Amino acid sequence: MIRVLIADDHAIVREGLKKILALTQDINVTAEVANGAEIIKRLRGAADVDLLLLDFVMPGVSGVDLIGRIKACCADLPILVFSMHNESQIAFRAIKAGAAGFISKDSEPEILLKAIRKVAGGGRYIDPALAEQLAYEAAFPEQRAPHALLSDRELEVFRMLVAGKRVNEIADQLAISNKTVSTHKQHLMEKMRASSTAELVRYAVQNSLFR
């Protein structure tokens, strides 16, 4: 039996996942949490979780930062990222941070179940469409999109700016200073060749980022 911990801040998503997994004979949901802090608290000393099904973006610490903290706490726990961000660079960064798999929330239930079984068994799984895009970008690095040049932290600041958060709000959520956030913002805007936050938002919309 594969024992799964679901981490997603939307109750309706958690309920939908539980209904899908309840139809199987070999997968059981042992617990569910709604943010990063709850994940760490639930996993400490736990021996009843074989796989973490993780939403990439949740309140508080999330994304690659959260994956890093989870791996520091539970190095051997397989993480399958289940995200609305159907974008190759997000998938690449999640895998690089320590996740064993990445699928989109647009995926069919069969893909979800296949990914859970593969990752729980020690393998890796990436949404086929994203895997194809990653392979193309690896073969033709000169054609990578501008946001592929951003560091993980710059991409996180980019996402939060697009979500409408102010510098001080980003600083509080990431536990860094306002000055550091402003520096990241300056660097990412230079790399993106953007002169305003509005241009960043337009780029994100045009490239289907952070949906």
Rank of each mutant, 00 (worst) to 15 (best):
M1C: 08
R3T: 04
V4D: 06
I12E: 10
I12F: 09
R14Q: 09
R14A: 08
E15L: 12
L17V: 11
I20K: 12
Q25F: 04
I27D: 01
N28T: 01
N28G: 00
E32F: 06
A34G: 08
I39G: 00
R42G: 03
L43W: 08
R44G: 13
A47E: 11
L54I: 12
D55W: 00
D55V: 00
F56G: 07
V61Q: 02
G63I: 00
R69V: 08
A72K: 09
A72N: 10
A75T: 11
N86Y: 14
I90T: 14
A91P: 14
A97C: 15
A97H: 15
A97W: 14
G98L: 02
A100M: 09
E108P: 15
L112I: 10
K114Y: 08
A115I: 06
R117D: 01
K118P: 07
V119T: 08
A120V: 02
A120Q: 05
G123T: 01
D127C: 13
P128D: 02
A129C: 13
E132Q: 09
A138M: 14
A138E: 14
P141Y: 04
P146K: 04
H147V: 03
S151W: 11
D152Q: 05
E154P: 07
E156G: 00
E156P: 00
V157E: 01
F158L: 05
M160S: 11
V162R: 03
V167R: 10
I170S: 03
Q173M: 15
Q173S: 15
L174Q: 12
I176Y: 10
N178G: 01
T180H: 09
T180V: 11
S182F: 01
S182D: 03
S182E: 03
T183P: 01
H184E: 04
K185T: 05
M189Y: 00
E190F: 05
S195D: 08
T197F: 10
T197C: 11
E199D: 09
E199R: 11
E199N: 10
V201N: 13
V201R: 15
Y203E: 02
A204G: 14
A204W: 12
Q206G: 14
